[in-house]
């Protein structure tokens, strides 16, 4: 997870009749509000720098109008930036010619859309083979591969249905199957689950996480929902008014919000589901008690520890070595208090 699969550097996007001229103004320090009022241009994205790790899930979170959907469309260049670079495995997407870009979209990056964007005149099967058809794969082989993905997203038996005959959740499964079928190792998900109701959304998150355990794709996931971001993200970038306000792991975002804006966002979050034991454990002493993984969430640990007679537990790392200890007081404090400064310095 250390290598950056996708690297975005100094990316700016200005909407309006003369974005290039406006870039000068931006360099001179003109802000977003002044840009609209004085020059009639919208500063969509401002100096975005992002390293997206390989085989991880990078979440980009922001409220509507923060520029998150614009940002994801720069990765496969559905939107042209005003200036900046988008490097995928070191190759600049923005310098690709038409043919190279088409090949990039066909083979290396596929996309799932908020409103599904399925082809209404095609069945589930025909929608799923769409990307393969564009690649030019023979129909028989394409159908065989598509059938596999339809099965993986749990839609077997619905191959001949039209999208309109399916519920929203099922339609988005088709969208997911369509994107997975092309075998691209980058998956761009633009608010993919936002249009679904909460139960279905949780369901889809599970499907995605299950698939990811096995597929190890590089996923860029856009959402406006912090719970969703914390649940599925390995890395989170928070976007506000076209700027990245904070980047980090879910724990870093929760435990060390960079400013009031983010603190306000995170205050209603259930910390017990985000914070891991290794973040809050105290140094080892000769305690006894059950052995728990350092990556276990506080909430889950609380349950185990409450039931254990000693009201405490040992924390172990991947190789089974004891690296620390927690007791019920630690756990409750972690769930209740935002300021756990000591351990954080090590993160």
């Amino acid at each position: 997870m250390s290598n950056a699969k996708i690297e975005i550097r100094h990316l700016y996007k200005i909407f309006g009749p003369d974005p290039v001229a406006m870039m000068e103004k931006v360099r001179e320090g003109v802000g977003k509000d002044q840009m609209i009022e004085e020059f009639g241009h919208v500063l969509g994205l401002s100096d975005i720098n992002l390293k997206i790790p390989e085989k991880g899930i990078q979440v980009v979170m922001g409220l509507s109008g923060s520029g998150k959907s614009t940002l994801i469309r720069h990765i496969n260049r559905l939107i042209e930036p005003t200036t900046g670079d988008v490097l995928v495995e070191g190759e600049n997407v923005l310098e690709m010619n038409e043919q190279a870009l088409r090949n990039f979209r066909r083979h290396r990056a596929s996309m799932v859309f908020q409103k599904f964007a399925l082809l209404p005149h095609r069945t589930v099967m025909e929608n799923t083979v769409y990307g393969l058809e564009i690649q030019g794969l023979a129909e028989k082989e394409a159908r065989k591969q598509a059938a596999h993905w339809i099965d993986r997203v749990g839609l077997s038996g619905y191959e001949e249905n039209y999208p309109q005959q399916l519920s929203g959740g099922m339609q988005q499964r088709v969208g997911l199957a369509r994107a997975l079928a092309t075998d691209a190792d980058i998956l761009l998900m633009d608010e993919a689950f936002s249009a679904l109701d909460p139960l279905i959304r949780a369901d889809m998150q599970n499907i995605l996480l299950d698939l990811q355990q096995e597929l190890h794709k590089t996923i860029v996931f856009i959402t406006h929902d912090l719970e969703e971001a914390l649940r599925i993200g390995d890395q989170i970038a928070i976007l506000r008014d076209g700027e990245v306000v904070q980047q980090g792991t879910p724990q870093q975002i929760i435990l060390k919000p960079k400013d009031d804006y983010i603190a306000d966002f995170t205050k209603d979050i259930n910390r017990g589901r985000v914070i891991q034991l290794k973040t809050i454990m105290s140094p080892v002493n000769d305690l006894l008690g059950p052995e728990l993984s350092g990556e276990m969430m506080v909430e889950d640990a609380a349950q185990v520890v409450t039931e254990s007679p000693s009201s405490q537990a040992r924390v172990i790392d991947d190789s089974g070595r004891v690296i620390g200890a927690v007791n019920i007081t630690n756990l409750i404090r972690a769930m209740a208090r935002p300021d756990i400064e000591t351990r954080l310095e090590e993160l």
């Binding site: 496969n76 090949n103 859309f113 964007a117 082809l119 564009i134 092309t182 761009l188």
Partner: peptide
């Protein structure tokens, strides 16, 4: 629908 067209673009359709 523009979104369907965008999807076609995203999959690299000519």
């Amino acid at each position: 629908d523009r979104e369907v067209l965008e999807a076609a673009d995203a999959f690299g359709a000519s």
